[in-house]
Design a protein around this nucleic acid. Structure first.
Lengths: 120, 120
DNA sequence: ATTCGTAATATAATACAGGGAATAACGGTA
DNA sequence: TACCGTTATTCCCTGTATTATATTACGAAT
């Protein structure tokens, strides 16, 4: 005996992207925050890009964009010195990481809930 | 007397995009659903594209993609006839529109809540 | 038979983002 | 002083995505 006509409907995945905008367009996004984390880890923009596989040019654009859009910069960089130069995360940089990951986690939960809710 | 140091912090906008994926990539998104609505209104793919400013080629690819990813097509089209041809929305097409807008509305509420929550 | 407006499809043209290469500045180190 | 690895910046090239163009098919109306 067959149960009530319950079609084995196709499975759809609910997806999305989130980011935070300032006056100059994107301020924080997934890639930007990962970049911040790597800069923190390697204390270098170039080191971060190598670990991600991102071009230095691109990373530098992103850092410039983030710094210019926040009241206080998220990354401070310097040239010369023992290792030729380096970069550090400011306290605001650390805060930005935490802030975005919380937003991101909430979003993932939201998507999961919606996908459950809207089974066709 | 000044209240506790509450800086007039910059205002950031929490933004995002959502879509629904099938096996062949994107199934429904904002642009696709608007396209469906216009096809319904004009009973024509070409008419829909004119109203949106989208190329016919692009619209046709989107319709093909949506139809191929759902069990039953969302749009049926025919050539010839009084007006040279036309296209109609199927019941599943109508359902898809409602489904996505609900998802979209929930998402907008989510973003608003998050933006309020995370005032820096 | 001809015309008309659309669907359906292929091909050409264009725009645009992203990456690579090149270069200068910088300041410890050897 | 010469060297090194990094930051900082400009210029150019290429792959990709989008748009435009062109062509064929279709069926009703005239």
């Amino acid at each position: 005996m067959v149960k009530k006509g319950k079609t084995t409907s196709k499975r759809y995945r609910f997806k999305g992207r989130i980011w935070i905008e300032g006056e100059g367009g994107t301020f924080l996004g997934y890639g930007r925050v990962v970049l911040l984390e790597r800069i923190k880890k390697y204390e270098s923009i170039a080191g971060a890009t190598r670990s991600i596989g991102m071009s230095y040019r691109h990373a530098w654009d992103l850092v410039k964009s983030m710094n210019s859009q926040s009241e206080k910069p998220l990354v401070t960089a310097f040239t010369g010195g023992r290792r030729g130069g380096g970069a550090r995360l400011t306290p605001d940089g650390e805060k930005a990481i935490k802030l975005f990951w919380k937003f991101y986690e909430d979003f993932r939960n939201f998507l999961q809930k919606e996908e459950m809710k809207f089974r066709i």
